[in-house]
């Protein structure tokens, strides 16, 4: 692994003088650096895209079989159902449904003990990691989203939108999905201040996230109470909402509602993360670092 690609925490030093313009520049640089860092893991990226493609094939056939038995199930036609699989595979790593991304880096900093110092750096802790995660997501959308999607389109009849506005809406929805996912993962990672290691919490989060994001099955197909609760939970923002935007199931006012739903969760989770971060900082102070 090249040394330059090593993850690090926020830098030491004095904060930039013109606060907003300077900060924006710092975050942009962080995001760009993160994009570049992930792009250096070439073999891992190729292998990962291959894996997404393999799973895409297997799951697409299982959906084909289900929709052959029940055409129009959940309001999806067969082409939409198959497309659902490929879009969700494209989003799996991009929005880190499984966890990971900055989470691994922060956990590593817990292990090395650098974390106590991180909280006192001039650059905002949450902002720093968020910027990095956005850069990572950008790279993964291109590298691990596009390639499997193209492979899928070669074999299956996919429903790809033609309207550039739909694409714009989709990209915005993916951005919001990354924000919500970051908000969730940030809360998980902060438990490290209280727990011996956050692996247990992370595993539970993985199960909940895989299921309630709609990654395995569209939420609309959940029975009874599950089906009523799932669309309201933040995890729906991760896969279900952006995929429905892609499939043009959310249009017009529906599109605005979907984006608003994601944005609301993003705000709530990021604010919650901020509060927990304050508690964590206080805790570190009490323990004397």
């Amino acid at each position: 692994m090249p040394v330059s690609a090593k993850p690090g925490g926020p830098p030491r030093g004095r904060p930039p003088r013109t606060a907003t313009a300077g900060a924006a520049r710092v975050y942009l640089a962080v995001a760009a650096g993160s994009f570049r860092r992930y792009s250096t893991y070439r073999a891992a990226t190729l292998a990962g895209a291959f894996t997404n493609t393999v799973f895409g094939f297997i799951l697409a056939y299982s959906f084909l079989a289900l929709w052959q038995a029940r055409p129009g199930l959940g309001g999806y036609d067969t082409a939409q159902a198959v497309t659902y699989i490929w879009v969700s595979q494209a989003l799996l790593v991009t929005v880190a449904v499984w966890g990971g991304g900055f989470q691994d880096d922060v956990q590593e900093r817990f292990r090395t003990g650098d974390i106590a110092v991180d909280l006192y750096r001039p650059v905002d802790f949450q902002g720093w990691w968020l910027a990095g995660d956005l850069g990572r997501a950008g790279f993964h959308l291109v590298a691990r989203g596009a390639a499997p999607m193209i492979a899928g389109a070669l074999v299956f009849d996919l429903r790809v939108p033609h309207d550039p506005l739909v694409w714009a809406g989709f990209l915005l929805s993916v951005l919001l999905a990354v924000l919500v996912s970051f908000g969730l993962r940030y809360l998980v990672v902060l438990t490290g201040f209280w727990l011996h290691d956050s692996d247990g919490v992370r595993s539970v989060m993985l199960v909940v996230s895989m299921f309630f994001s709609g990654m395995l099955l569209p939420i609309g197909l959940f029975p009874g109470l599950l089906g009523e609760i799932a669309p309201l939970l933040p995890w729906a923002s991760l896969v279900q909402v952006p995929t429905d935007v892609f499939l043009e199931r959310s249009t017009g006012a529906g599109l605005l509602g979907a984006l608003g739903f994601q944005a609301a969760w993003a705000v709530v989770l990021l604010a919650l993360g901020r509060i927990v971060q304050l508690l964590a900082t206080r805790r570190v102070v009490v323990q004397g670092g």
Binding site: S62, A65, L217
Partner: peptide, 28 residues
Amino acid sequence: LMLGANIMITSLDFFVVVLMFQHTDRLG
């Protein structure tokens, strides 16, 4: 904790199959 989480993660796959069969009697 990790053993429990492990069982939950692997169970999820089959749970999805069961959910599919809420909508159909046969798959393929």
